[in-house]
C-alpha cells in the first residue's frame, strides 16, 4: 500500500526543482553571454565586453531576482512534527 506523503516533502521537492532550474538558467546566461560576446574587441566600463556583461551585469541581476524567488517560491512550513501547522 502506498504511504501517504507528508505535504512538506512536496515543498522540499519544489525547492529542489526551483534551485536546479534557477542555477541552470544562470549558468546558461553567464556562459552563453560570455561565449556570444567573446568575439568582440569592444570595451564596456573599460573591461572586455564579455567580462562586463557575463561577470558584472548578469550575476547581480540573478542575485536580485533570487530575493523574491526564494521568499515567495518557498512557503514557510513548520519543520518539527509538534509545531503548529504540521500535518
Amino acid at each position: 500500500m502506498e504511504l501517504p506523503e507528508d505535504p512538506r516533502v512536496g515543498v522540499a521537492r519544489r525547492a529542489l526543482a526551483l534551485a536546479w532550474t534557477f542555477y541552470t538558467v544562470f549558468l546558461a546566461a553567464v556562459l552563453g553571454v560570455a561565449a556570444a560576446a567573446a568575439g568582440s574587441d569592444a570595451l564596456l566600463f573599460g573591461l572586455p565586453r564579455w567580462v562586463a556583461l557575463s561577470c558584472l551585469v548578469v550575476p547581480p541581476v540573478f542575485v536580485l531576482a533570487l530575493i523574491p524567488i526564494a521568499e515567495r517560491g518557498i512557503p514557510d512550513i513548520p519543520l518539527g512534527d509538534d509545531e503548529g501547522g504540521a500535518p
Binding site: 525547492a15 529542489l16 542555477y23 550575476p59 540573478f62 542575485v63 533570487l66
Partner: peptide, 18 residues
C-alpha cells in the same frame, strides 16, 4: 569563479528542507 555565486541556494534549496 563567478559561477559559484549560488552555493547557498544549491545547498539549502536542494537538501535544506528535507
Amino acid at each position: 569563479n563567478v559561477t559559484q555565486t549560488f552555493l547557498s541556494l544549491m545547498l539549502l534549496a536542494t537538501v535544506g528542507i528535507m
